[in-house]
Design a protein around this nucleic acid. Structure first.
Lengths: 207, 207
DNA sequence: CGACAACTTGAGACGCTTCAAAAAGGGTGG
DNA sequence: CCACCCTTTTTGAAGCGTCTCAAGTTGTCG
């Protein structure tokens, strides 16, 4: 792991703050070892405002392999907001964006079956990973997650994750091989994930 | 429901942006009606940056009873960041805080049993509700949630929620009556929730 | 070639879900 | 004040999805 001072981070629209050379995950654990991955971070992603980071060791970030990243202090964050409001605005936006990832995952974990959760995760990760790929992922995208990561991300047991993964693979929906993920029947995956059909207006719309 | 222009919102350290006269919830639904409440909003809470609000009706906010609130546009948000960086900073902080609520809930839904989830929710909601109470909730706190709300918040079925709730109540851990929540054996509830014991440092600490 | 991590598979147990239906509240109009 | 309706709560019973336990296989790296 390499730690790069903020002022040296070279990247993208918002170079100052974050990024990896590889994947990582935010997670929480219970005292008996049960572990829940909150969301995955891909190269180029923003590490959320980790204010609660130090509060307890309950909340962590784990690298799935070597990463390089930038960290910043709360004070520095405030200074930045004052000095460069537009970047501060971007940070707010990015924080909100990260939350939306967690929101999506909570919907999965709370209300989708194992098959549906896995289909959802594969599609979403593929999409994110394909963005930085040359041809949009025609020959798959890099996929460094172990089945244990997937299980912890979806609130499933390792065993059941494996069986479900194999079932979908045997049905020809996807393939994971050599550290790469291939979607072979995107339509079926999307159908399983119910990614479009979201709906139902709020009974009492507020906004 | 009353809609108050932002510049008139009277409240707290950060009067401009949010708040209710009552409770509400953020949720998502699947096309077949399955519903997951992401987090609950209590009086005084901030409504997150609802950028994705309009993206699809998949994401909603429901009032549990009449509420009054402030809304703001994305542009207004940007203008605010520029004009008042300190408030912009607070917004970032609040957005991150709301995310931490969702994180906590995701840990519950993904890795806690039904009993543990309910214990966790009761304690956390009680704490939040007690803050604004005169005596810190010695005679309970207002509790407008139905069991369906609790079920949707915890990723459980209504039936199982009811049975678990009754089991805990019969064991003397809590009481819900007349729209109020009373914690009767906080210690036992905390033990169930594993709220302190969080632990386990990251295998590969990043920060 | 030995060691360790990741993956795979089978089998039994249990927690939670679904279905079904009744009881208890809460509000409204006659 | 009662009759009615609709929402919320409660309880029983059966089914199944997921978990745990157990062990074997495959892959990787030194």
């Amino acid at each position: 792991m390499t730690d790069i001072p903020c002022n040296q981070c070279p990247l993208r629209a918002l170079p100052l703050f974050t990024l990896f050379s590889c994947w990582a995950s935010r997670f929480k654990t219970l005292s008996d070892g049960r572990r829940q991955i909150l969301n995955f971070l891909l190269p180029g992603d923003f590490i959320g405002v980790q204010q609660k980071m130090t509060e307890a060791s309950a909340h962590g970030v784990e690298a799935l392999s070597d990463v390089s990243l930038c960290t910043f202090q709360r004070d520095a964050l405030w200074a930045l907001h004052r000095a460069a409001p537009s970047i501060g605005f971007d940070i707010t936006w990015l924080a909100a964006h990260e939350e939306s990832l967690v929101d999506d995952n909570l919907l999965s974990v709370g209300r989708r079956s194992a098959e549906e959760r896995i289909a959802t995760l594969l599609i979403l990760l593929f999409k994110r990973a394909a963005v930085v790929m040359p041809q949009g992922g025609v020959d798959g995208v890099p996929f460094p997650l172990t089945q244990q990561h997937i299980a912890d991300g979806l609130g499933l047991s390792l065993v059941h994750t494996n069986k479900t993964l194999r079932k979908l693979e045997r049905r020809g929906l996807h393939r994971i091989e050599g550290g790469r993920l291939y979607l072979r029947d995107t339509r079926a995956l999307v159908r399983l994930a119910d990614l479009y059909g979201d709906g139902k207006p709020s009974p009492r719309p507020l906004i």
